[in-house]
Design a protein around this nucleic acid. Structure first.
Lengths: 191, 191, 191, 191
DNA sequence: GATTAAGCGAGACGGTACGTCTTGTCTTTAC
DNA sequence: GTAAAGACAAGACGTACCGTCTCGCTTAATC
């Protein structure tokens, strides 16, 4: 007895093609940036028909969003360390990002992500969460409050937003990204 | 006996065409956004040959940059007020920007500007300066320090950057833009 | 004691699907013409998987050929009448075809058949036989010779070919298709 | 003084591109036939953008029509000879066409032309005129009447149509194309 | 009855070509 | 010498079909 009413007929989606496509998106994004990433280029590199892309994603920003979601666009080294000392950790992390941004390629990566985010709210949210969200800055700030390293009445959500926002602003608008700028920025945020 | 002081031969640049082009850029930008703004569309709307555009600007982001520089892309109401009370002024200003961003069209305007900024550093700098720079937030913060409304050892440049960055992050990544969020954000920045 | 002469295992070919496919081909051919008839469209209209078509026919011209063979593409009224008077019958028949060709839709039907014939020799032969072959013109001419209405040394095969050929030429290249043109043509052929 | 009111501004059509395109169409048509001639293939072979083709022609049949009009698709040898003897000339000419049609490539050329004609009435008319029209069969038949080789009350237009039609029918539907068939056909037409 | 082939509907897949759009350059005529 | 007009090579866009290939049924004939 057990209901059957199974799924649907027809060949199932090819996981192999999906992986090939996301691989290609990731590599093209990193090599050429968001603006000159093309669906045709992705299809060609992935060895896939264009229709297979359009069947599952509607825009190139959707493609990029899925890559981002799967963590294919970011170097892992960018994760926020946790030595116990909040200030040192944040300075270290911001410093790493600044270092990445001092390299034109790295800067391009970041501005490309921002460009992608302007085309797709999901990417924006993901960026926000990845950089500043539960997994990282916000969590560390909250932990810092609990550990007594931060006054409990500091509005951690807003501070996290301000810190990450400052990084983005520096990426698109210039502004100092030398090591000491990391110290200044973090100290300004931590008050 | 007319003065000669001749520069070079041939017809001088047509100011009329220049204005028509910038008008068209501004209107297309506002109607369709940065991504779907095209040189051809601008030329057509301006009643101008494409070459006339390419002769004086090299990319569409340059066009947009010049529009931004001439203040054609922004509603004037967005300038930071000065009632003497720094906190109130900032909350008011941030609140206005949040209100703009709550409307999808306004949100599109802002994300389009950010998109343009990712393609052109000048635009980024301009954005940074217009929103957070000498003319506005930074200047008001500095004035606030002088007026004793802000502790003199607060790093005003960084705070300005953080505030404007938070706005941009909210534009691309979501995040609260209700009136009370303006209060929270400004208070977080002012410590 | 029934013979077994067994076939093979597995489900037998579905006659229902076959009919649905040929129906769809016929309707699409008549509505859209040979050039814009597609296998996918036929499959969709017939409620059939593409593979079921490809299993039994290799090209769309094969499909059309089978339709033609089953008489699904032609109005029946086009069959050559037999009143006993060869000349009158031919003029009548040619006149009917001319009438069909004066209507753009009918003209399209004929040119579509010719287009199909250029892609598939079977269709060409079938067209030739159906229009000019044993069942009709050639047979009537031969009968006419026997009935003494046509000189016995007239080369009936060639005349039949010439008459049908003239119709086709008028279909693709224009040329008069008024009622009196039928008289002229038939009289020219009958000498 | 002297009216100027000259033509129009902008670069004039490039004759070089036009020639390259028609060359490519002609070569592709001859090599691959009408059905597998593609606009993209023509553009590539001609070293031309697709838009340059679409700017001046709307369909591939228009392209082929213009080639035909410029005499780029036909071997010249197919012109009807004129030795003074109408019957001999026609037999010779029909024989040459039959010879061409006995070769698969030649047959393909002819059926491709017919296929093109089904898609474009101009091509049909051109084919009709080139093969049977003023320049050839009809003219020779008319001349034959004047020379007393043909009874003056024979309907030359219809006979010409019937002869050319018979050729086309043989091309698409089979039918004898041996040398003696040329004799039979011409004699049937000449009565 | 269980097994085994085929047929079938659905539909994903790698491709090719379509016809359109835009880019940045070039060429002409008008002012 | 600048400008409007517009042709040009290039190439990406998103769509339509092609013919092939799984899938999970269903339908007989064979064991």
């Amino acid at each position: 007895m057990g209901a059957m009413l199974s799924s649907r007929r027809g060949a199932p989606r090819s996981e192999k093609s999906r992986q090939a496509i996301l691989d290609a998106v990731s590599s093209q994004f990193q090599e050429r940036g968001y603006a000159s990433l093309t669906i045709e280029g992705v299809a060609a590199q992935a060895g896939v028909g264009k229709q297979t892309i359009y069947r599952w994603w509607s825009t190139k920003s959707d493609l990029v969003a899925e890559c981002l979601l799967e963590g294919r666009l970011f170097p892992d080294r960018l994760s926020l360390p946790d030595t116990g000392d909040l200030r040192i950790d944040l300075i270290d992390w911001v410093g790493q990002i600044f270092e990445l941004m001092r390299d034109p390629a790295g800067r391009g990566l970041v501005t490309s992500l921002i460009a992608a985010a302007t085309a797709n709210e999901q990417i924006g949210q993901r960026l926000r969460e990845t950089l500043g969200g539960h997994q990282s800055v916000l969590a560390r700030l909250t932990a810092g409050v609990e550990a007594g390293q931060l006054s409990p009445n500091r509005p951690v959500a807003e501070l996290s937003e301000a810190l990450v926002g400052a990084l983005i602003l520096k990426a698109i608008g210039g502004g100092g990204t030398e090591p000491q700028d990391a110290v200044l920025l973090v100290d300004a945020i931590l008050s």
